[in-house]
């Protein structure tokens, strides 16, 4: 990873402050001048990536239900229309990969797609076959990012993924964990392996990664994808009945979901957050959340203090 860009904190903060324009592909984007989403550079390449992606855990696992598949495709259409790029899935997510493939086919394979998937199998020797199966489900020529899911057999999978990257059959390599598990091992891999991304859980109430993982990611030039931003909806459920604090308006947040997403993407180490949803209005709101002003350190502390009191 000799070419890996070691972006300074100042450079990252500068990037945060400016919502860079993204190459516009979708016709709706072209017709909507203010629709460019906030982007973040992928540390290892500098490639701009919209700060809000789309997760598929549970929400896209709808089996062969044609109505639900069309509904998921509509969510994807709106995601791309408002400037989204990264869609994340896993072989563990039931039919989600096939549903994404169905949606991509229906949308004529949007060129802006950033396809992020995972390998989740043991022993590691079965990894290549699973990756190929996943690729067929998505019906894409190659993945942009492949991650070792929950660190399962990472010692065997990482060499496979790095070899795929070297052979130009993959653009980025990563690892994932969730809900604060195995952070010690994540750190060890971050320090020893030439990975491009980590995926971890982070939100207003789950902030373990702030202590070591996120600073280490910045130091090592590793991109950070954030999963479970609202604890699969449980966090929103817990606070939804409480009024949004009036000062949320100072950063343009008009809902709890917006406030939480703004909190997450305002951390300088975060590259992309991947909320999952079944609703078109929510996917648009999620992407829009990262536009406009983001909370500074004082506002971030205020958000934490307020939510913890609820």
């Amino acid at each position: 990873m000799a070419h890996l860009s070691r972006l300074s904190r100042r450079a990252l903060l500068r990037t945060l402050a400016a919502s860079s324009a993204v190459a516009v592909v979708g016709r709706t984007i072209a017709a909507t001048p203010d629709a460019s989403p906030l982007t973040r550079p992928i540390p290892s390449s500098g490639e701009a990536l919209p700060a809000v992606g789309l997760g598929s855990w549970i929400t896209f696992n709808v089996g062969n239900d044609d109505v639900a598949r069309d509904s998921c495709a509509e969510v994807m259409r709106n995601f791309f229309d408002v400037g989204g790029r990264l869609i994340d899935s896993s072989p563990m997510y039931g039919s989600s990969q096939e549903v994404i493939g169905y949606g991509l086919g229906k949308l004529n394979k949007p060129a802006r797609l950033f396809a992020a998937d995972k390998v989740w199998i043991s022993p590691g020797s079965r990894g290549p076959a699973q990756i190929e199966q996943s690729r067929r489900h998505w019906d894409v020529p190659r993945f942009d990012l492949l991650q070792v899911h929950n660190l399962l057999s990472w010692q065997e999978h990482l060499p496979t993924l790095l070899a795929m990257k070297a052979a130009d059959r993959l653009r980025y390599v990563g690892i994932t964990t969730s809900e604060g598990r195995r952070h010690g091992e994540v750190e060890k891999i971050m320090r020893s392996q030439p990975i491009d991304f980590i995926q971890v859980s982070y939100n207003v109430v789950d902030r373990d990664v702030e202590a070591r993982i996120l600073p280490l990611a910045r130091d090592r030039g590793i991109g950070v994808i954030i999963n479970r931003p609202v604890r699969e909806g449980a966090l929103l459920k817990r606070i939804a009945s409480r009024p949004l604090p009036p000062w949320a308006g100072e950063i343009g947040a008009t809902s709890w979901a917006q406030l939480i997403i703004k909190f997450i993407v305002s951390h300088p180490a975060v590259t992309c957050v991947i909320p999952a949803t079944t609703r078109v209005d929510h996917v648009r709101e999620n992407v829009y959340s990262a536009r406009g002003p983001l909370p500074d350190e004082a506002m971030r502390a205020r958000i934490v203090a307020h939510v913890e009191k609820l």
């Binding site: 929400t59 696992n61 709808v62 639900a68 997510y93 039931g94 809900e179 598990r181 195995r182 079944t278």
Partner: peptide, 21 residues
């Protein structure tokens, strides 16, 4: 590892809506 940190909902792959549908 860290099995005690898992809850039943961590193993649920689908939504109730999908299940009943």
């Amino acid at each position: 590892s860290e099995w005690w940190t898992y809850t039943l909902s961590d193993f649920l792959l689908f939504s109730p809506r999908t299940y009943y549908r």
